[in-house]
Design a protein around this nucleic acid. Sequence first.
DNA 1: GACGGTGAGCTTTGTCGATT
DNA 2: AATCGACAAAGCTCACCGTC
Length: 310
Amino acid sequence: MQYDWLNYNHLYYFWVIANEGGIVAAARKLRLAESTLSAQLRYLEESLGHSLFERQHRRLKMTEPGRLVFDYAETIFSAGREMLDVLRHRPGGKRQIVLRLGVLAGLSKNLQLEFLAPFLGREGLRFAVRQGSLPYLVSELANHRLDFFISDIPVETNKSRDVFNRVLGTIPVCVVGAKKFLGLRRKFPDSLQGAPLYLPTLESSVRADFDRFLGESGVKPEIRAELDDIALLRVFVLHGQGMAVLPEIGVRGELQRKTLFVIGRPPGLRETIYAVTPRRMRPHPLVAEILSHFASRYRDSLKALPEEAS
DNA sequence: GACGGTGAGCTTTGTCGATT
DNA sequence: AATCGACAAAGCTCACCGTC
């Protein structure tokens, strides 16, 4: 029988069973008979109209609906624990908010820091930052395990209708190299002819623009490696055997310390940064504040860009 | 490898007490 | 009286282990 209301007692039992890994362990923890938990779990499944566990012989394996319910239960009962903590230990204290942020693997670490730095010291706010591939981040967002993620590649909205790309801004991209390449500055970009270069991979949004720039300039450098990680590109270029195409923010420290130098700035070459949020849900006010803070920093870059990329 | 004993995990059934 | 949540007991299935 399906109901419009939820029996939170049943939900709690399910949550403990999932946490403990089985009915026997959960029964021990709750000091109940195993049969009681088995029956209550069955009632919950019937009321929800979904099996929450797949019975595999003597083991319970969580199903997809089970995972979804577990995520909600986790939020509900974590909030309950938090409420008790606040009431018992911090009278009058404010609730701590945890924002779950995803970052596309390979994105500049400095950029991530710049993104969060203004909010890191804020009372009652904590970040849980996870890196991953684009499909992984989209899946985590769809399953409510992330509040939003940042990426330099937009999600194809015809493939995933549940997400929304917001252009946050653009970051200048340049060719950087060690001191010994400084002589190439004068006749840039012609001086890149035959010069050793490390590039972002073809999947990168910057790569296509840079290839176009080379094509228009008629210059053919010697491409030594293609790397999909900004941090890795930075390490390669620091090794001194070649230059690299990088967002300036990714090597800001090295440029300040003069261990790397800007060899040239291909005109108009910028990396676009997107914030990907769930389409149907209003972002948390704090998320909106963070996004608008970052976007305002790069406001000038935004003027020429569409509101949503597809 | 086949067989049987044992234990573990889960379900079903019947029953009872508290609450509405 | 109906419903809910709890219990005990019995049963089912399977993994593991020792023996032949």
